[in-house]
Design a protein around this nucleic acid. Structure first.
Lengths: 146, 146
DNA sequence: CTAAAATGCAAGTAATTCAATAGGAATTAT
DNA sequence: ATAATTCCTATTGAATTACTTGCATTTTAG
């Protein structure tokens, strides 16, 4: 049940971009800035942001004064979307995955006890991740600071 | 967020042993039997059961007529206990782990948005796994079959 | 007492994944 | 032009995963 570094870094970067969106009109931020602020190896972060870009979650601008910014308002991007791009399916086992189903080989899925419980786990995780937007995370942080 | 084969096989084996406990006085079952029934490589299962034994969740008997059986009633063993032995902490990130905490390096854990959400995820997973016993799984399977 | 049947235990291995790192190509502002 | 930035692909070293091998130990049956 682990979040990879890739996933962790990507989620931190997206939260960072959401803050930038809130604090400046364009919300444009450079890899280097995020890497420094969040203590992430810059070249690794570059790959991650590229993947998020190809998934349509961020946009970018090349050249001087360029950088990354969220493709949509922070209230419309969920942690689940980000997570899936970077770490793949949320489900603990593929036979309960909505986005990447695969049979697990048990004789009858409908009466497989392990599958039932893991289905519950998947739903519990997905409910949190798919209902938490970047904006909601920021709000929570602000409440905690107050 | 993935369950390893080791974890999957171990959980299946434990459910199998819980059924055996219900169906026979001793509940003793051999590796070979479980391996065949659940389609698990026997030697790999051997390792897994040994780990579960060392963790005190199953007992064993060597020699002819030997085998494995649950160390406690199926209603007193949770999937969480089994999972942790085989796949380690339930938490998606160690800074929210109860059993294997480690700082994640963010400047302030109390106001780290990612940590808050991942804490929720951990609790959601743990609530399911730590409140589902082997007996409960079997009951659910029986209800599904009916 | 010996042979067979079972678990106990440690080491090895092939393949994959993870967490970067390296290096240049393309683009854009000045 | 040049400098700053993202774009893209490949490589690498370490760790993890999913087994496999081989032998030791214990127990029962005959």
């Amino acid at each position: 049940m682990r979040l990879s570094k890739r996933g962790e870094y990507g989620l931190r970067a997206m939260i960072s971009l959401a803050e930038a969106q809130k604090n400046s009109p364009t919300g444009m931020t450079q890899i280097r800035e995020i890497a420094q602020k969040e203590q992430i190896p810059a070249k690794f972060l570059e790959q991650i942001l590229l993947a998020l870009k190809n998934a349509g979650l961020v946009h970018s601008k090349m050249g001087i004064g360029g950088g990354y910014y969220l493709a949509k308002p922070a209230g419309e991007i969920t942690l689940g979307q980000v997570f899936r791009v970077l770490d793949g399916p949320v489900a603990p086992i593929r036979c309960v995955s909505q986005m990447a189903y695969e049979p697990c080989g048990c004789p009858d899925e409908a009466t497989c006890g392990l599958r039932m419980v893991m289905g519950d786990v998947r739903n519990a995780i997905a409910n949190i991740l798919d209902h938490t937007t970047l904006a909601a995370v920021i709000e929570r942080v602000e409440n905690a600071r107050a």
